[in-house]
Nucleic acid binder design. Structure first.
Lengths: 220, 220, 220, 220
DNA sequence: CATGAATGAGGATTCATTCAT
DNA sequence: TATGAATGAATCCTCATTCAT
């Protein structure tokens, strides 16, 4: 990452410009509503240039998702490393996920419009949760029936709340209530659930890249 | 309704064929992924015929949604009228909703791909739930914080579970567990929750997929 | 014309209804802008009925032109029979032609939109003029060079003035001035030209058929 | 204008090819009778190429008219500058107009089929005439009644003669007779009218069919 | 004869992708 | 590598015409 040739750096810059352009246009809808020309115009490069970086149109959408996923996962991993308690991990993971939703419109829009792959985008977040739940159950902190099914219910809640927030149907601060509900559902006493839901995310360094200033606050 | 002229009956049959074809093709994705030709080929009618029945392509998608909604709502109303207890009503509504999900693949697919209107399609179901929750809270049977937010969480869970079932990721019979979880979340003791989740739907005539009796019978 | 069977009369009525409908719709533009359905709807008959009366769509447009032509010619013939003097005949023919233009919008619209055949529609009128000019030249009343070419110039003027009137660019009463100019061009002294241009059309019985009330005044 | 990049030159060539193709096809009738495919086939380019140059089908028809108009007007202006006498200007303008008619079939066809705008296409020519007539009247050389109406009559004659020539119904050399008739109608003595009608156009560079020199030379 | 459902060729327009420069 | 002109398959939609009832 440190010593790329000048041309190589330029390549990266163009590639990034294309991806950013695509994110910016995502509000229009799915792939069908965004043309390659739209993207290259937004990125301010020639139309043909696109195909020097992506084989198909579809490829850039996947790249955008990968990009989002990567940033998301990287960030999430940092919390993994700073926490131990499964209940806290659950709370932090959920809180982080909701915060992404509140601060990163593109992210949501891709969640919304990227079809089947939207299940993928929360995957990391949920995979983490699964292990936390397992740990929690083993440790006797959580009391639930089927682990996977519970995860499913949580997935549904998270996803729904995220989209509702995105559409302005819910206040952003409901995330705490959601987390509390989920923790209660896992068998935690309400006091504990509430406390965890209210505690801030552990402080870690800022996420690598994002055009949105507020995103800086993610580290909160 | 019984006494339509032959022509009129034929018209209805063609219209239904187009709608059924559209439902059948819905698995491909949204409107963008289904061409009018796909529909007419699937329905085995000429391309031009489509436009004798629907003004735009979009119109048939709306018609399909209306169709689904109507059947769903009509059916749901029957349960409304046979039950009184809010907890039972909740359980029945949820159970019915999950049942629809299991028996009508198309229904789900449309839930999934019809964009914003997907919130509409469960609307009736959820509007019912809201009043049941209110009743339940008033009657002291449910103990929850914010009613609307709780409804949101339920919405998310229901929707997600439905889609998971549709995609074969979950066994159909988890619906009972979901209902039980939801009832527990509403504050019912686990025993009651389990009992309600297990009790069968009140007996009413079997759900039908279309408001047009003749055509349906002809297809079954 | 007197004793047609009832069915035959009905046939005629339907045919006429179709033709009238077409005239009424002519304001939309040429054949391309009027669909067979438009015509049958306007005529209040079934779509298929159209093809019991006309082989193609084009056929009805020709029929309309023939119809217009026939009425026009029939009427024109009456003047032929009541006048002798070639200058008067010229004046009357021109005046009648301009009057048609003023009172019969359909007529003009067909003139305007029927493509090449529009040269045909004035044909009778001009054929008459040709013989009058010849008579006039022979009789020494007109003094001109090439007869056919003069007729061409007249044709151009008449046609243009008619369309200008139709489009509201010229006052209807300019027809007198036009006639006067034409007669002058034929070599008549201005006083005579003016007198002829101002004299009314000979009174004859009303034209056979037209949906426009004012048309009754044509007999003027 | 001289120094266009190669690409730019290519663009112009394609654009011109499309416009020329359209002119060539105009004999078929209006826009309705010419499909975009017809045009691109005639121009020997791919169908899609059309839309790199014109937003709609309609746009190319307007472009053709603008093109014709521009060439016509530019040329006409040259005569304006070399003559003073209103009668000579009238004669020259008319003669030039008729000449265009004889040499540019396409020009006529567009005159004929371009709907309302056909009045526009002769507009420049006639606007000139109007000022010449006014000058002539003021100077006492012309003796007529209403100036505008006279102009209308002239418009009609010119247009008609042009189209008759185009259709082969009239010999090309009648233009002299037409000019003579028009000048006589304006009150000039026949000898003068004839003399003016016969005098050749002032010598200026040959009329060109297109404002784009390179392309034109390439085609000639 | 009257009707209108069915049909498919035809037409405008979009856009992903290729390729020569 | 960057570019953008060229391309044609794909798509929506219209409408003249046919034909069974």
């Amino acid at each position: 990452m440190a010593d790329l040739s000048r041309t190589e750096r330029k390549r990266q810059r163009t590639r990034t410009a294309l991806i950013e352009a695509t994110r910016k246009l995502a509000y229009r809808g799915g792939q069908e509503k965004i043309s390659v020309q739209d993207i290259t115009e937004e990125a301010d490069v020639g139309l043909g240039t696109f195909y020097n970086y992506f084989e198909h149109k579809q490829a850039i959408f996947e790249a955008v998702l990968d990009d989002i996923q990567e940033v998301f996962d990287t960030q999430l991993d940092r919390f993994n490393s700073t926490l131990k308690d499964p209940a806290m991990l659950m709370a932090a993971t959920l809180k982080y996920t909701f915060q992404q939703a509140q601060h990163n419109e593109d992210w949501l829009i891709f969640l919304e419009y990227s079809g089947r792959s939207r299940y993928q985008i929360l995957h990391q977040s949920l995979a983490q949760c699964l292990s936390y739940i397992q740990k929690g159950v083993t440790a006797g902190r959580f009391r639930i029936g089927d682990i996977h099914f519970t995860l499913n219910l949580i997935h549904g809640m998270v996803r729904h709340v995220i989209l509702e927030i995105a559409q302005g149907n819910l206040e952003a601060d409901v995330s705490e209530e959601a987390i509390r509900s989920i923790l209660r559902m896992l068998g935690l006493p309400d006091v504990v659930a509430r406390a965890l839901a209210q505690s801030p995310l552990p402080a870690v360094s800022a996420p690598r890249r994002s055009p949105l200033p507020e995103v800086i606050n993610w580290k909160l």
